[in-house]
Amino acid sequence: MNGNLQLNADGSLRHLLTLDGLPARILTQILDTAESFISVAEREVKKVPLLRGKAIFNLFFEPSTRTRTTFEIAAKRLSADVVNLNIATSAQSKGETLLDTVANLSAMQADMFVVRHASSGAAHLIARHVEPHIHVVNAGDGRCAHPTQGLLDMFTIRQHKGAFHNLRVAIVGDLLHSRVARSQIHALTTLGCPEVRIVAPRTLLPRDVDHLGVHVHYRMDTGIKDCDVVIMLRLQNERMQGALLPSPQEYFKYWGLTPDKLRHARPDAIVMHPGPMNRGVEIDSDVADGKHSVILNQVTYGIAVRMAVMSLLAGG
C-alpha cells in the first residue's frame, strides 16, 4: 500500500487509509487530539464548530451499523453536514463504477469521504482519484485495514494503561479474516509496545504471519499469560469459506475467553473487543460484562478518535 498517499508534502495527514507506515508522531497527535474531544462529550452542548459548512459523505458499500453511526455522530459533533449513502443498495447495483460514483458525489461539493468497502484497496483507489481538497478516511476495506478502529483501540489502551512501552498485548482469535488486527499490530509496534502476541488456531492465521513482527501462540493459557491487554477478535462467520472450524461450541471450548482462562492474564488486565460480539463463541458473557471489560468504553472513545481524525484531515 502506498503510505505517502496519506501525507501532505509538509508531513501532515491528507487521507487516513491505513496505519501501516504512519509515523508515531501522527498517531500520537491523533490520540492527543482525541483526548480533548472526550471533554467535549461531557458538556451541556456536545458540539464544536470546527467543520461548520463542510460536507462529509459516508460511503458504505458494505453494511456496518456501528462504524457508520460513530462516524456520523463524530461528524455531527464537529458541526459538519453528513450524508449517508448505503451504496450496496444503490447506484452500484445499477452498474456504475466506484470512481463514477465518487466523481458524482464530488460534483455535489463533498469535502470528505468515509469509505467502507468489501474489497481491499477501495479507499486507496478513491484517494488516488479525488480532487486535492477532498479527504478520504478508510472505514474498513476487505481484509486490509480498519485504521480508525486500530486508533480507538490504541486510545483505549492509553486511557487505561497510560503508556505502551511496558505492555504485553495479546490479540486473540480469527486473524485470518481480521482487518482490525493488522491495524492494531502496526499501531502497537509503532507506538513502542515491546511484546505483541497473536493467539489463534493455525487455520485462522494469515499466511504472512511471520512478517508481522509478533509472537505467535497456539494455546490460550500460555498465549495470554501475564498480558496487560487481551484483545478478542470477532469470529467472522460470514467471511468463512470451507471448513476452517469444527463448530462454534468447540471454538468456544478452546478459544473463547472465559473467566477461567482470563486468570492467566495479569490481575489488572483489560479485555477489548471491536464488536459486534458473538457471546458464547469468542467471549463468555461473564467476561464481556465483567470488571476487566472496556468494550463499551471503546465505543465511546471511537467517537472522540473519529472526531480527531476528521478535524486533523480537514485542517491539513
Binding site: S12, Q29, T33, S36, S39, V40, L50, L312, G315
Partner: peptide, 13 residues
C-alpha cells in the same frame, strides 16, 4: 481553522 488547521497541541478544556 480552515486557513491554518488544528493547533498541533490541543489540550482538553
Amino acid at each position: 481553522f480552515s486557513r491554518i488547521g488544528l493547533h498541533p497541541e490541543v489540550k482538553p478544556s
